[in-house]
Amino acid sequence: MRVALFVTCLVDQMWPSVGVSTLEVLRRVGCTVEFDERQTCCGQPAFNTGYSAEARQLAERFIQMCEESEAEAIVSPSGSCTAMVHHYPALFDNAGDAQENHEWRRRARAVAERTFELSSFLVRVLKIDDVGARWPGRVTWHDACHALRDLNVHSEPRRLIGNVREAEFVELDNADSCCGFGGTFSVKYPEISVAILDQKIEAIEKAGVQAVVSGDASCLMQIGGRLSRKGSNVRAMHLAELLASR
């Protein structure tokens, strides 16, 4: 299948190995992967902070770029950025010309329909839950909020991890509770953000794992940043990195 990789700005700049791993997994399962170098940010930081005009600007740009691609699916190693693309139609509800908005909503829906988060693309679209990965060690999974609640991603990553050879999977206590990141929330209210995070860290420590895996680089920067500050040996790992290992 022909797939366009939406790597996300965060992964591009801060965690490129997640993008490389995503590419590798997609190629391994037989996809032809294209990457449009014009891609930047989906607009989520602006949208979530209340700057809808700026978010709309970036959404229009992203929609236009995707329309030029003939890829059957747009795949991203982020539930949060994928959820933002799925939210695009709602950006064209209010401001501006009604006719124009109607047209943008139609175009936004068409792009959203073929945009997928990595694990749900593999399991739901390609019907693949074993990508031939191998990783020796004990791992757990943190449900990123937007993947879980906006995209209903729950069983997909667990199935994929369950099929990683030599990996032992344990459920995290309150796996579905927020890590406290929340975009600009993490720096607007850093003390609250870290208080929430520390409950997640407590659960991870209790799980006795070598790695905590999740589907969003943003949550992983939050979790990993605290683990690193506390001198923990637990690795914050993206699902793509786990699946690329062999």
């Binding site: 591009d12 700049q13 993008g19 490389v20 993490s186």
Partner: peptide, 29 residues
Amino acid sequence: PPLGAWTNARDMRPIAESTFREQWRAGLR
């Protein structure tokens, strides 16, 4: 201020030596 707010209790990942798109151009493609 966001840098101070983040790093007060959390380490931060730096910008990578080579971004994904730089690696893409350098041969990943």
